[in-house]
Nucleic acid binder design. Sequence first.
DNA 1: AACTTTTCATTTGTCAGACATTTAAAAGTC
DNA 2: GACTTTTAAATGTCTGACAAATGAAAAGTT
Lengths: 246, 246
Amino acid sequence: MKTELRQDRDLSAQIADVLRNAIIEGRLLIDERLPSEAELADSYGVSRPTVREALKRLAAQSLIRTQRGASGGAFVNRISYDDAYGQQVSTATLLLSMNEVDFETACDARFALERSAAALSSERRSADHLAAMRAEIHRQAQPGLSDESFCASDVAFHRALVDGAGNPVLSWHLAGAIEGMQPLMNMITFSARDRARIIDLHAKLTDALEARNASGIETALDALCQETKQMAEQVKEARQQRPGTA
Amino acid sequence: MKTELRQDRDLSAQIADVLRNAIIEGRLLIDERLPSEAELADSYGVSRPTVREALKRLAAQSLIRTQRGASGGAFVNRISYDDAYGQQVSTATLLLSMNEVDFETACDARFALERSAAALSSERRSADHLAAMRAEIHRQAQPGLSDESFCASDVAFHRALVDGAGNPVLSWHLAGAIEGMQPLMNMITFSARDRARIIDLHAKLTDALEARNASGIETALDALCQETKQMAEQVKEARQQRPGTA
DNA sequence: AACTTTTCATTTGTCAGACATTTAAAAGTC
DNA sequence: GACTTTTAAATGTCTGACAAATGAAAAGTT
Protein backbone atom coordinates (compact mmCIF):
# COMPACT_ATOMS: atom_id res chain seq x y z
CA MET A 1 0.00 0.00 0.00
CA LYS A 2 2.80 2.37 -0.89
CA THR A 3 1.98 4.68 -3.75
CA GLU A 4 3.62 7.94 -4.58
CA LEU A 5 1.11 10.76 -4.76
CA ARG A 6 1.26 13.47 -7.33
CA GLN A 7 1.12 17.04 -6.17
CA ASP A 8 -1.13 18.33 -8.93
CA ARG A 9 -4.33 16.66 -7.78
CA ASP A 10 -6.31 16.60 -4.57
CA LEU A 11 -4.37 14.44 -2.18
CA SER A 12 -7.51 13.23 -0.44
CA ALA A 13 -8.98 12.16 -3.78
CA GLN A 14 -5.87 10.24 -4.70
CA ILE A 15 -5.71 8.46 -1.36
CA ALA A 16 -9.39 7.60 -1.66
CA ASP A 17 -8.71 6.15 -5.12
CA VAL A 18 -5.85 4.00 -3.88
CA LEU A 19 -7.88 2.61 -0.99
CA ARG A 20 -10.97 2.16 -3.17
CA ASN A 21 -9.04 0.09 -5.68
CA ALA A 22 -7.57 -2.00 -2.90
CA ILE A 23 -11.06 -2.78 -1.67
CA ILE A 24 -12.67 -3.41 -5.06
CA GLU A 25 -9.84 -5.62 -6.22
CA GLY A 26 -10.05 -7.62 -3.05
CA ARG A 27 -6.63 -6.75 -1.63
CA LEU A 28 -8.52 -5.60 1.44
CA LEU A 29 -11.03 -8.20 2.60
CA ILE A 30 -14.41 -7.62 4.12
CA ASP A 31 -14.32 -6.58 7.77
CA GLU A 32 -10.56 -6.09 7.53
CA ARG A 33 -9.36 -3.10 9.47
CA LEU A 34 -7.56 -0.31 7.69
CA PRO A 35 -4.55 1.29 9.36
CA SER A 36 -5.45 4.03 11.78
CA GLU A 37 -5.77 7.57 10.50
CA ALA A 38 -2.46 8.49 12.06
CA GLU A 39 -0.72 5.54 10.42
CA LEU A 40 -2.26 6.30 7.03
CA ALA A 41 -1.26 9.93 7.34
CA ASP A 42 2.24 8.87 8.17
CA SER A 43 2.58 6.33 5.38
CA TYR A 44 1.28 8.69 2.70
CA GLY A 45 3.13 11.67 4.07
CA VAL A 46 0.01 13.79 4.56
CA SER A 47 -1.83 15.19 7.53
CA ARG A 48 -4.63 13.50 9.37
CA PRO A 49 -7.37 15.87 8.12
CA THR A 50 -6.41 14.95 4.57
CA VAL A 51 -6.64 11.25 5.38
CA ARG A 52 -9.99 11.83 7.02
CA GLU A 53 -11.37 13.53 3.93
CA ALA A 54 -10.31 10.50 1.91
CA LEU A 55 -12.00 8.13 4.37
CA LYS A 56 -15.20 10.16 4.31
CA ARG A 57 -15.28 9.78 0.54
CA LEU A 58 -15.16 6.02 0.95
CA ALA A 59 -17.76 6.10 3.71
CA ALA A 60 -20.10 7.99 1.38
CA GLN A 61 -19.97 5.01 -0.96
CA SER A 62 -20.53 2.56 1.89
CA LEU A 63 -17.13 1.05 1.19
CA ILE A 64 -16.01 1.46 4.79
CA ARG A 65 -17.59 1.97 8.17
CA THR A 66 -15.85 3.57 11.11
CA GLN A 67 -15.95 2.81 14.79
CA ARG A 68 -14.64 4.84 17.65
CA GLY A 69 -12.72 3.75 20.67
CA ALA A 70 -9.95 1.29 21.35
CA SER A 71 -9.84 -1.43 18.69
CA GLY A 72 -11.95 0.93 16.60
CA GLY A 73 -11.00 2.24 13.20
CA ALA A 74 -12.14 2.00 9.60
CA PHE A 75 -13.31 -1.39 8.40
CA VAL A 76 -14.05 -2.63 4.93
CA ASN A 77 -17.80 -2.76 4.77
CA ARG A 78 -19.97 -5.48 3.34
CA ILE A 79 -22.45 -3.31 1.51
CA SER A 80 -25.96 -4.15 2.62
CA TYR A 81 -28.76 -4.82 0.18
CA ASP A 82 -30.55 -1.75 1.48
CA ASP A 83 -27.51 0.45 0.96
CA ALA A 84 -27.08 -0.85 -2.57
CA TYR A 85 -30.80 -0.36 -3.16
CA GLY A 86 -30.65 3.26 -2.04
CA GLN A 87 -27.59 3.96 -4.15
CA GLN A 88 -29.19 2.38 -7.19
CA VAL A 89 -32.33 4.48 -6.85
CA SER A 90 -30.36 7.62 -6.11
CA THR A 91 -28.03 7.24 -9.08
CA ALA A 92 -30.87 6.42 -11.44
CA THR A 93 -32.85 9.39 -10.17
CA LEU A 94 -29.97 11.76 -10.74
CA LEU A 95 -29.22 10.35 -14.17
CA LEU A 96 -32.81 10.79 -15.29
CA SER A 97 -33.57 14.13 -13.70
CA MET A 98 -30.29 15.96 -14.22
CA ASN A 99 -29.42 14.89 -17.73
CA GLU A 100 -31.61 15.79 -20.60
CA VAL A 101 -32.94 12.28 -20.93
CA ASP A 102 -36.26 12.57 -22.66
CA PHE A 103 -39.14 10.93 -20.94
CA GLU A 104 -39.84 8.56 -23.79
CA THR A 105 -36.36 7.03 -23.67
CA ALA A 106 -36.52 6.50 -19.92
CA CYS A 107 -40.02 5.12 -20.18
CA ASP A 108 -39.15 2.69 -22.96
CA ALA A 109 -36.19 1.39 -20.99
CA ARG A 110 -38.22 1.02 -17.84
CA PHE A 111 -41.03 -0.96 -19.42
CA ALA A 112 -38.64 -3.08 -21.45
CA LEU A 113 -36.97 -4.15 -18.22
CA GLU A 114 -40.24 -4.62 -16.42
CA ARG A 115 -41.55 -6.86 -19.20
CA SER A 116 -38.80 -9.38 -18.59
CA ALA A 117 -39.28 -9.24 -14.84
CA ALA A 118 -43.01 -9.69 -15.27
CA ALA A 119 -42.46 -12.75 -17.42
CA LEU A 120 -40.50 -14.36 -14.62
CA SER A 121 -43.02 -13.17 -12.06
CA SER A 122 -45.84 -14.88 -13.92
CA GLU A 123 -44.10 -18.19 -13.23
CA ARG A 124 -43.05 -17.62 -9.67
CA ARG A 125 -45.37 -15.07 -8.03
CA SER A 126 -47.11 -16.12 -4.82
CA ALA A 127 -50.58 -15.20 -3.59
CA ASP A 128 -48.98 -12.58 -1.35
CA HIS A 129 -47.71 -10.63 -4.32
CA LEU A 130 -51.13 -10.68 -5.95
CA ALA A 131 -52.69 -9.49 -2.70
CA ALA A 132 -50.20 -6.65 -2.39
CA MET A 133 -50.93 -5.56 -5.94
CA ARG A 134 -54.69 -5.63 -5.43
CA ALA A 135 -54.28 -3.65 -2.23
CA GLU A 136 -52.45 -0.94 -4.13
CA ILE A 137 -55.11 -0.93 -6.85
CA HIS A 138 -57.69 -0.39 -4.15
CA ARG A 139 -55.71 2.52 -2.75
CA GLN A 140 -55.33 4.04 -6.17
CA ALA A 141 -59.10 4.03 -6.64
CA GLN A 142 -59.75 6.03 -3.50
CA PRO A 143 -61.07 9.51 -4.19
CA GLY A 144 -59.16 12.48 -2.91
CA LEU A 145 -55.82 10.78 -3.30
CA SER A 146 -53.06 13.25 -4.09
CA ASP A 147 -51.05 12.85 -7.27
CA GLU A 148 -47.99 12.17 -5.19
CA SER A 149 -49.69 9.40 -3.22
CA PHE A 150 -51.06 7.95 -6.44
CA CYS A 151 -47.53 7.85 -7.80
CA ALA A 152 -46.17 6.24 -4.64
CA SER A 153 -48.86 3.57 -4.79
CA ASP A 154 -48.06 3.01 -8.45
CA VAL A 155 -44.43 2.38 -7.52
CA ALA A 156 -45.48 -0.02 -4.76
CA PHE A 157 -47.71 -1.88 -7.22
CA HIS A 158 -44.94 -2.39 -9.74
CA ARG A 159 -42.49 -3.26 -7.02
CA ALA A 160 -44.75 -6.06 -5.85
CA LEU A 161 -45.06 -7.25 -9.43
CA VAL A 162 -41.28 -7.39 -9.82
CA ASP A 163 -40.74 -8.96 -6.40
CA GLY A 164 -42.99 -11.75 -7.59
CA ALA A 165 -40.09 -13.01 -9.68
CA GLY A 166 -38.44 -13.99 -6.40
CA ASN A 167 -35.06 -12.70 -7.53
CA PRO A 168 -33.60 -10.00 -5.26
CA VAL A 169 -30.96 -9.06 -7.83
CA LEU A 170 -33.66 -8.50 -10.41
CA SER A 171 -35.66 -6.46 -7.89
CA TRP A 172 -32.56 -4.40 -7.25
CA HIS A 173 -32.07 -3.63 -10.92
CA LEU A 174 -35.72 -2.77 -11.42
CA ALA A 175 -35.66 -0.44 -8.44
CA GLY A 176 -33.51 1.91 -10.46
CA ALA A 177 -35.76 1.67 -13.47
CA ILE A 178 -39.03 2.17 -11.59
CA GLU A 179 -38.27 4.29 -8.54
CA GLY A 180 -35.72 6.33 -10.43
CA MET A 181 -38.50 7.67 -12.61
CA GLN A 182 -40.55 8.91 -9.68
CA PRO A 183 -39.43 12.55 -9.92
CA LEU A 184 -40.37 12.57 -13.59
CA MET A 185 -43.70 10.92 -12.83
CA ASN A 186 -44.40 13.43 -10.11
CA MET A 187 -44.46 16.18 -12.70
CA ILE A 188 -47.53 14.60 -14.25
CA THR A 189 -51.02 15.62 -13.22
CA PHE A 190 -53.29 12.59 -13.20
CA SER A 191 -56.81 13.44 -14.26
CA ALA A 192 -59.66 11.25 -13.05
CA ARG A 193 -59.88 9.70 -16.49
CA ASP A 194 -56.12 9.01 -16.53
CA ARG A 195 -56.35 7.30 -13.18
CA ALA A 196 -59.30 5.20 -14.28
CA ARG A 197 -57.42 3.97 -17.31
CA ILE A 198 -54.31 3.17 -15.29
CA ILE A 199 -56.27 1.37 -12.60
CA ASP A 200 -58.04 -0.63 -15.28
CA LEU A 201 -54.70 -1.65 -16.76
CA HIS A 202 -53.36 -2.51 -13.32
CA ALA A 203 -56.36 -4.77 -12.78
CA LYS A 204 -55.91 -6.44 -16.16
CA LEU A 205 -52.23 -6.91 -15.38
CA THR A 206 -52.96 -8.47 -12.02
CA ASP A 207 -55.59 -10.75 -13.50
CA ALA A 208 -53.16 -11.91 -16.17
CA LEU A 209 -50.51 -12.50 -13.52
CA GLU A 210 -52.96 -14.54 -11.47
CA ALA A 211 -53.80 -16.61 -14.55
CA ARG A 212 -50.07 -16.87 -15.35
CA ASN A 213 -50.95 -15.49 -18.73
CA ALA A 214 -47.65 -14.10 -20.01
CA SER A 215 -48.97 -12.53 -23.18
CA GLY A 216 -51.75 -10.82 -21.29
CA ILE A 217 -49.18 -9.30 -18.97
CA GLU A 218 -47.15 -8.05 -21.89
CA THR A 219 -50.19 -6.48 -23.51
CA ALA A 220 -51.13 -4.66 -20.31
CA LEU A 221 -47.56 -3.42 -19.80
CA ASP A 222 -47.36 -2.15 -23.36
CA ALA A 223 -50.61 -0.30 -22.89
CA LEU A 224 -49.34 1.20 -19.62
CA CYS A 225 -46.18 2.33 -21.37
CA GLN A 226 -48.20 4.01 -24.11
CA GLU A 227 -50.53 5.61 -21.60
CA THR A 228 -47.64 6.97 -19.54
CA LYS A 229 -45.84 8.40 -22.54
CA GLN A 230 -49.07 10.03 -23.69
CA MET A 231 -49.63 11.72 -20.36
CA ALA A 232 -46.06 12.98 -20.35
CA GLU A 233 -46.58 14.32 -23.84
CA GLN A 234 -49.58 16.30 -22.65
CA VAL A 235 -47.57 17.80 -19.82
CA LYS A 236 -44.86 18.74 -22.28
CA GLU A 237 -47.33 20.47 -24.59
CA ALA A 238 -48.88 22.35 -21.71
CA ARG A 239 -45.41 23.49 -20.66
CA GLN A 240 -44.61 24.78 -24.11
CA GLN A 241 -47.81 26.81 -24.28
CA ARG A 242 -47.07 28.76 -21.14
CA PRO A 243 -43.45 28.49 -20.28
CA GLY A 244 -41.91 29.84 -17.09
CA THR A 245 -43.62 27.35 -14.83
CA ALA A 246 -40.74 24.98 -15.36
CA MET B 1 -30.95 25.77 4.90
CA LYS B 2 -31.08 26.08 8.69
CA THR B 3 -31.34 22.78 10.47
CA GLU B 4 -30.45 22.04 14.02
CA LEU B 5 -27.90 19.28 14.29
CA ARG B 6 -28.02 16.59 16.90
CA GLN B 7 -24.94 15.94 18.94
CA ASP B 8 -25.23 12.16 18.96
CA ARG B 9 -24.30 11.55 15.33
CA ASP B 10 -21.39 12.51 13.12
CA LEU B 11 -21.80 16.17 12.37
CA SER B 12 -20.24 15.84 8.94
CA ALA B 13 -22.66 13.05 8.05
CA GLN B 14 -25.64 15.13 9.14
CA ILE B 15 -24.50 18.16 7.19
CA ALA B 16 -23.92 16.00 4.14
CA ASP B 17 -27.45 14.63 4.49
CA VAL B 18 -28.97 18.07 4.69
CA LEU B 19 -27.12 19.29 1.62
CA ARG B 20 -27.77 16.04 -0.27
CA ASN B 21 -31.50 16.36 0.28
CA ALA B 22 -31.42 19.96 -0.82
CA ILE B 23 -29.80 18.90 -4.08
CA ILE B 24 -31.93 15.83 -4.74
CA GLU B 25 -35.15 17.65 -4.00
CA GLY B 26 -34.14 20.45 -6.32
CA ARG B 27 -33.88 23.22 -3.74
CA LEU B 28 -30.35 23.69 -5.04
CA LEU B 29 -30.27 23.89 -8.81
CA ILE B 30 -27.62 22.57 -11.14
CA ASP B 31 -24.49 24.73 -11.28
CA GLU B 32 -25.71 26.73 -8.33
CA ARG B 33 -22.95 27.65 -5.95
CA LEU B 34 -23.09 26.51 -2.35
CA PRO B 35 -22.04 28.93 0.38
CA SER B 36 -18.31 28.95 1.01
CA GLU B 37 -16.87 26.51 3.52
CA ALA B 38 -16.42 29.29 6.03
CA GLU B 39 -20.03 30.41 5.63
CA LEU B 40 -21.34 26.85 5.95
CA ALA B 41 -19.21 26.29 9.03
CA ASP B 42 -20.59 29.46 10.52
CA SER B 43 -24.21 28.74 9.70
CA TYR B 44 -24.11 25.20 11.11
CA GLY B 45 -21.96 26.16 14.06
CA VAL B 46 -19.15 23.75 13.25
CA SER B 47 -15.56 24.07 12.16
CA ARG B 48 -14.32 24.18 8.61
CA PRO B 49 -12.73 20.72 8.63
CA THR B 50 -16.11 19.27 9.58
CA VAL B 51 -17.79 21.09 6.71
CA ARG B 52 -15.06 19.89 4.38
CA GLU B 53 -15.63 16.27 5.37
CA ALA B 54 -19.30 16.72 4.56
CA LEU B 55 -18.48 18.24 1.17
CA LYS B 56 -16.07 15.41 0.33
CA ARG B 57 -18.88 12.96 0.98
CA LEU B 58 -21.01 14.75 -1.60
CA ALA B 59 -18.11 14.96 -4.03
CA ALA B 60 -17.67 11.19 -3.77
CA GLN B 61 -21.20 10.82 -5.10
CA SER B 62 -20.56 13.33 -7.89
CA LEU B 63 -23.22 15.57 -6.39
CA ILE B 64 -20.89 18.57 -6.26
CA ARG B 65 -17.67 19.70 -7.85
CA THR B 66 -15.28 22.19 -6.29
CA GLN B 67 -13.15 24.92 -7.75
CA ARG B 68 -10.42 26.91 -6.15
CA GLY B 69 -9.78 30.60 -6.31
CA ALA B 70 -11.89 33.72 -6.20
CA SER B 71 -15.43 33.02 -7.34
CA GLY B 72 -14.61 29.38 -6.75
CA GLY B 73 -16.46 27.13 -4.37
CA ALA B 74 -18.65 24.06 -4.43
CA PHE B 75 -21.18 23.79 -7.24
CA VAL B 76 -24.08 21.44 -7.71
CA ASN B 77 -22.91 19.02 -10.34
CA ARG B 78 -24.82 17.69 -13.32
CA ILE B 79 -23.83 14.07 -13.07
CA SER B 80 -22.36 12.92 -16.35
CA TYR B 81 -23.47 9.77 -18.12
CA ASP B 82 -20.00 8.35 -17.61
CA ASP B 83 -20.04 9.07 -13.90
CA ALA B 84 -23.45 7.46 -13.56
CA TYR B 85 -22.23 4.52 -15.62
CA GLY B 86 -19.23 3.99 -13.38
CA GLN B 87 -21.33 4.23 -10.24
CA GLN B 88 -23.84 1.77 -11.62
CA VAL B 89 -21.19 -0.80 -12.45
CA SER B 90 -19.38 -0.25 -9.17
CA THR B 91 -22.50 -0.64 -7.04
CA ALA B 92 -23.63 -3.72 -8.95
CA THR B 93 -20.19 -5.26 -8.64
CA LEU B 94 -20.10 -4.73 -4.90
CA LEU B 95 -23.63 -6.02 -4.42
CA LEU B 96 -22.85 -9.21 -6.31
CA SER B 97 -19.37 -9.91 -4.99
CA MET B 98 -19.75 -8.88 -1.37
CA ASN B 99 -23.16 -10.28 -0.57
CA GLU B 100 -23.84 -13.96 -0.69
CA VAL B 101 -25.77 -13.66 -3.91
CA ASP B 102 -25.60 -17.05 -5.54
CA PHE B 103 -24.42 -17.08 -9.08
CA GLU B 104 -27.65 -18.53 -10.41
CA THR B 105 -29.75 -15.66 -9.08
CA ALA B 106 -27.42 -13.04 -10.54
CA CYS B 107 -27.25 -14.90 -13.82
CA ASP B 108 -31.02 -15.28 -14.11
CA ALA B 109 -31.51 -11.59 -13.46
CA ARG B 110 -28.85 -10.62 -15.94
CA PHE B 111 -30.23 -12.69 -18.81
CA ALA B 112 -33.80 -11.74 -18.03
CA LEU B 113 -32.84 -8.10 -18.46
CA GLU B 114 -30.75 -8.79 -21.51
CA ARG B 115 -33.63 -10.61 -23.18
CA SER B 116 -35.76 -7.50 -23.14
CA ALA B 117 -32.91 -5.33 -24.38
CA ALA B 118 -32.18 -7.81 -27.16
CA ALA B 119 -35.80 -7.74 -28.27
CA LEU B 120 -35.57 -3.99 -28.73
CA SER B 121 -32.17 -4.32 -30.35
CA SER B 122 -33.54 -6.69 -32.97
CA GLU B 123 -35.78 -3.87 -34.17
CA ARG B 124 -33.32 -1.02 -34.00
CA ARG B 125 -29.77 -2.34 -34.32
CA SER B 126 -27.59 -0.91 -37.09
CA ALA B 127 -24.96 -2.63 -39.19
CA ASP B 128 -22.32 -1.12 -36.91
CA HIS B 129 -23.58 -3.06 -33.94
CA LEU B 130 -23.53 -6.29 -35.90
CA ALA B 131 -19.99 -5.56 -37.03
CA ALA B 132 -18.85 -4.86 -33.48
CA MET B 133 -20.36 -8.13 -32.32
CA ARG B 134 -18.74 -10.14 -35.10
CA ALA B 135 -15.40 -8.49 -34.33
CA GLU B 136 -15.65 -9.65 -30.73
CA ILE B 137 -16.60 -13.16 -31.84
CA HIS B 138 -13.48 -13.18 -33.97
CA ARG B 139 -11.37 -12.10 -31.03
CA GLN B 140 -12.90 -14.75 -28.82
CA ALA B 141 -11.91 -17.44 -31.32
CA GLN B 142 -8.26 -16.50 -31.25
CA PRO B 143 -6.07 -19.13 -29.63
CA GLY B 144 -3.98 -18.19 -26.65
CA LEU B 145 -6.49 -15.68 -25.38
CA SER B 146 -6.44 -15.41 -21.60
CA ASP B 147 -9.58 -16.14 -19.64
CA GLU B 148 -9.67 -12.54 -18.54
CA SER B 149 -9.46 -11.22 -22.09
CA PHE B 150 -12.10 -13.70 -23.17
CA CYS B 151 -14.35 -12.35 -20.44
CA ALA B 152 -13.66 -8.75 -21.42
CA SER B 153 -14.53 -9.53 -25.02
CA ASP B 154 -17.68 -11.27 -23.88
CA VAL B 155 -18.70 -8.12 -22.05
CA ALA B 156 -17.96 -6.00 -25.13
CA PHE B 157 -20.04 -8.36 -27.26
CA HIS B 158 -23.07 -8.11 -25.03
CA ARG B 159 -22.61 -4.40 -24.63
CA ALA B 160 -22.78 -3.96 -28.41
CA LEU B 161 -25.90 -6.11 -28.45
CA VAL B 162 -27.57 -3.93 -25.85
CA ASP B 163 -26.40 -0.68 -27.43
CA GLY B 164 -28.20 -1.85 -30.56
CA ALA B 165 -31.45 -0.93 -28.86
CA GLY B 166 -30.38 2.69 -29.23
CA ASN B 167 -31.53 3.58 -25.75
CA PRO B 168 -28.79 5.00 -23.51
CA VAL B 169 -30.90 4.58 -20.39
CA LEU B 170 -31.38 0.92 -21.20
CA SER B 171 -27.65 0.56 -21.85
CA TRP B 172 -26.99 2.17 -18.51
CA HIS B 173 -29.21 -0.28 -16.68
CA LEU B 174 -27.72 -3.26 -18.49
CA ALA B 175 -24.20 -2.11 -17.66
CA GLY B 176 -24.88 -2.99 -14.05
CA ALA B 177 -26.31 -6.35 -14.99
CA ILE B 178 -23.55 -7.35 -17.38
CA GLU B 179 -20.38 -5.62 -16.24
CA GLY B 180 -21.30 -6.05 -12.61
CA MET B 181 -20.97 -9.80 -13.05
CA GLN B 182 -17.45 -9.58 -14.39
CA PRO B 183 -15.70 -10.46 -11.11
CA LEU B 184 -17.89 -13.53 -10.79
CA MET B 185 -17.24 -14.48 -14.40
CA ASN B 186 -13.52 -14.06 -13.90
CA MET B 187 -13.55 -16.90 -11.41
CA ILE B 188 -14.56 -19.27 -14.18
CA THR B 189 -11.97 -21.18 -16.18
CA PHE B 190 -13.08 -21.46 -19.78
CA SER B 191 -12.04 -24.72 -21.36
CA ALA B 192 -11.58 -24.87 -25.13
CA ARG B 193 -14.88 -26.72 -25.40
CA ASP B 194 -16.63 -24.11 -23.27
CA ARG B 195 -15.32 -21.35 -25.46
CA ALA B 196 -16.36 -23.15 -28.62
CA ARG B 197 -19.91 -23.53 -27.35
CA ILE B 198 -20.10 -19.91 -26.26
CA ILE B 199 -18.70 -18.65 -29.55
CA ASP B 200 -21.19 -20.80 -31.41
CA LEU B 201 -24.03 -19.29 -29.41
CA HIS B 202 -22.67 -15.80 -29.97
CA ALA B 203 -22.66 -16.47 -33.70
CA LYS B 204 -26.21 -17.81 -33.62
CA LEU B 205 -27.25 -14.80 -31.60
CA THR B 206 -25.68 -12.39 -34.05
CA ASP B 207 -27.22 -14.17 -37.01
CA ALA B 208 -30.63 -13.99 -35.40
CA LEU B 209 -30.11 -10.30 -34.68
CA GLU B 210 -29.13 -9.70 -38.28
CA ALA B 211 -32.27 -11.50 -39.44
CA ARG B 212 -34.28 -9.58 -36.83
CA ASN B 213 -35.44 -12.94 -35.61
CA ALA B 214 -36.62 -12.25 -32.07
CA SER B 215 -37.36 -15.82 -31.09
CA GLY B 216 -33.96 -16.97 -32.35
CA ILE B 217 -32.32 -14.35 -30.15
CA GLU B 218 -34.26 -15.51 -27.16
CA THR B 219 -33.32 -19.12 -27.77
CA ALA B 220 -29.63 -18.28 -28.02
CA LEU B 221 -29.74 -16.15 -24.87
CA ASP B 222 -31.48 -18.89 -22.93
CA ALA B 223 -28.83 -21.35 -24.06
CA LEU B 224 -26.08 -18.92 -23.04
CA CYS B 225 -27.69 -18.53 -19.63
CA GLN B 226 -27.80 -22.30 -19.15
CA GLU B 227 -24.23 -22.68 -20.36
CA THR B 228 -22.98 -20.00 -18.00
CA LYS B 229 -24.77 -21.43 -15.00
CA GLN B 230 -23.39 -24.87 -15.81
CA MET B 231 -19.83 -23.62 -15.95
CA ALA B 232 -20.27 -21.84 -12.64
CA GLU B 233 -21.65 -25.02 -11.15
CA GLN B 234 -18.52 -26.87 -12.21
CA VAL B 235 -16.32 -24.26 -10.56
CA LYS B 236 -18.39 -24.58 -7.41
CA GLU B 237 -18.00 -28.35 -7.33
CA ALA B 238 -14.27 -28.10 -7.91
CA ARG B 239 -14.06 -25.66 -5.01
CA GLN B 240 -15.88 -27.96 -2.69
CA GLN B 241 -13.60 -30.87 -3.48
CA ARG B 242 -10.44 -29.05 -2.51
CA PRO B 243 -11.29 -26.03 -0.42
CA GLY B 244 -8.78 -23.46 0.70
CA THR B 245 -8.21 -22.01 -2.74
CA ALA B 246 -11.08 -19.63 -2.18
C1' DA C 1 -8.62 55.75 -24.53
C1' DA C 2 -7.06 51.07 -24.95
C1' DC C 3 -4.21 47.66 -23.50
C1' DT C 4 -1.04 45.30 -20.29
C1' DT C 5 0.73 44.36 -15.87
C1' DT C 6 0.40 44.19 -11.03
C1' DT C 7 -1.83 43.77 -6.89
C1' DC C 8 -5.27 41.96 -4.04
C1' DA C 9 -9.13 39.66 -1.95
C1' DT C 10 -11.52 35.32 -1.95
C1' DT C 11 -11.81 30.47 -1.73
C1' DT C 12 -10.31 25.83 -1.60
C1' DG C 13 -6.33 22.60 -0.24
C1' DT C 14 -3.26 21.32 3.35
C1' DC C 15 -0.90 21.22 7.69
C1' DA C 16 0.15 21.08 12.88
C1' DG C 17 -1.34 20.51 17.30
C1' DA C 18 -4.68 20.11 20.62
C1' DC C 19 -8.79 18.45 23.19
C1' DA C 20 -13.24 15.64 23.57
C1' DT C 21 -15.47 11.30 23.30
C1' DT C 22 -15.93 6.52 22.84
C1' DT C 23 -14.53 1.94 23.68
C1' DA C 24 -12.26 -2.25 24.98
C1' DA C 25 -8.88 -4.16 27.63
C1' DA C 26 -5.95 -4.07 31.69
C1' DA C 27 -5.46 -3.20 36.49
C1' DG C 28 -7.26 -2.88 40.85
C1' DT C 29 -10.69 -3.92 44.62
C1' DC C 30 -13.96 -6.37 47.25
C1' DG D 1 -14.60 -14.81 40.91
C1' DA D 2 -17.28 -10.63 40.08
C1' DC D 3 -17.33 -5.92 39.97
C1' DT D 4 -15.20 -1.26 39.53
C1' DT D 5 -11.61 1.84 38.09
C1' DT D 6 -7.99 3.11 35.25
C1' DT D 7 -5.71 3.47 31.01
C1' DA D 8 -4.59 3.51 26.27
C1' DA D 9 -6.02 3.81 21.56
C1' DA D 10 -8.86 5.41 18.15
C1' DT D 11 -12.12 8.49 15.92
C1' DG D 12 -14.58 13.15 16.12
C1' DT D 13 -13.94 17.99 16.42
C1' DC D 14 -11.78 22.58 16.91
C1' DT D 15 -8.44 26.46 16.27
C1' DG D 16 -5.34 28.83 13.64
C1' DA D 17 -2.35 29.11 10.13
C1' DC D 18 -0.22 29.01 5.45
C1' DA D 19 -0.16 27.61 0.38
C1' DA D 20 -2.09 27.81 -4.10
C1' DA D 21 -5.33 29.06 -7.49
C1' DT D 22 -8.12 32.44 -9.64
C1' DG D 23 -10.82 36.22 -11.02
C1' DA D 24 -11.38 41.12 -10.49
C1' DA D 25 -9.92 45.52 -9.56
C1' DA D 26 -6.18 48.82 -9.53
C1' DA D 27 -2.16 50.65 -11.45
C1' DG D 28 0.80 51.47 -15.03
C1' DT D 29 2.08 51.98 -20.03
C1' DT D 30 1.62 53.15 -24.72
